[in-house]
Design a protein around this nucleic acid. Sequence first.
DNA 1: ACCTGAACACCGTTCAAGT
DNA 2: ACCTGAACACCGTTCAAGT
Lengths: 229, 229
Amino acid sequence: MRERLRPKSPRIEPEAVVRAGLKILDEEGLERVTLRQIASRLGVQAPALYWHFKDKSDIIDDMAQAILKEGGFEDLIVPSDKNEWANWLTLTAHSLRKAMLSHREGARIVAGASFQSKAMMRLKTRSTQVLNEAGFDLLHASLASETIINYVWGFVIEEQAQPSESEADRMNAEPIKSSLESDPEWKMIIDVMNQRSKLTGEQLFDWGLQVIIDGLRSSINCPGLSEKK
Amino acid sequence: MRERLRPKSPRIEPEAVVRAGLKILDEEGLERVTLRQIASRLGVQAPALYWHFKDKSDIIDDMAQAILKEGGFEDLIVPSDKNEWANWLTLTAHSLRKAMLSHREGARIVAGASFQSKAMMRLKTRSTQVLNEAGFDLLHASLASETIINYVWGFVIEEQAQPSESEADRMNAEPIKSSLESDPEWKMIIDVMNQRSKLTGEQLFDWGLQVIIDGLRSSINCPGLSEKK
DNA sequence: ACCTGAACACCGTTCAAGT
DNA sequence: ACCTGAACACCGTTCAAGT
């Protein structure tokens, strides 16, 4: 209707491309997110995508950006009170984790393409600013926010790497179980896994997060890079 | 000579395969580490590799293992004094970083294949034991060592992602420089980059590492997962 | 036991040509 | 301006067949 002004409206819109990409991602996994797959879902041939995007990584970048946008990282709200930095960091890290978890292999997408994607850069910049106002000098503020982001990223990568609960099943499989039951190292590993399974991923995540934030808290007053003696 | 006993000695040895893989990795990068490339360097056809390895990821796994072995992670020395856990963690993290840095895209290889590769699992198990003896209960000891390993991994991934110093060059390129010179966010980013360039990667790495270790130190006496209130 | 040759089912990307 | 058809130069993997 309102497209009537243009002679021929394009058959594919860039945002439809990233939607199709995300759909394939969730339904079939990252390795099946292929130019031909995306194109076929849009009723188009693969080379058509090259009119709208530079290359495949360009599409992946936009997919990452979309994931972060869905998670509310479009316009980050910085804390009003400067002393709220720890709470803000905690909240932001948790919602970054949730954003990554919201799509299959989301962590790989967000960081995999170009780690310096626009969306990620903005997140880093924002949290650097928050930490800077909280008392960190610029350098350590930026290192701190990268440390946090790396933590979130690494945690979720592993979280998403575990194939459903087949791991626990494989552990209880007969052939290896009997041969390794006696190995004390395996006893420890199984013990740890059992303890973990009693807690949610969010709880496990938060523990490590608070460890880092505690470390930051104690470093905020005594800055100074470890000197090379 | 001493191979004379066997009728026909195999044309390729498994360890020659991983050596060839690492050579290609360093010379041409991860994306060119291909079965045909490896095979051709050994004077053999690609399908021949399937006699010695299950699939490509099996080769990548062995390459990761080799990298860790070169870095001395074959037989980890645990600290004699139980109170030396922080120093041991620091040292281990630094040498893990060095091992990953010793090959192009080493961090991707080590973690990329199966994060639960044998070599990585042993490292986790070892540090979990050390932290356990230091006073952490098993669950938190394992979470702590994963946090550290994730930190190393994330840091090195980014460290290796930056293409030489072309980044700094691109920043000073005329077209964008003039248009964004006034943007205060960009001023901050450039400021941070300048400060970073004055320090070694090792120094930057160590700061974040000590933050985490400080956090662990303060949590060792007051354990207790953050409760879901 | 160990490797080759040939094929299968894919990739990302380029580019002339269509509309 | 926007898309197709056909091709290029690759992938990992399988498998009958060779030696």
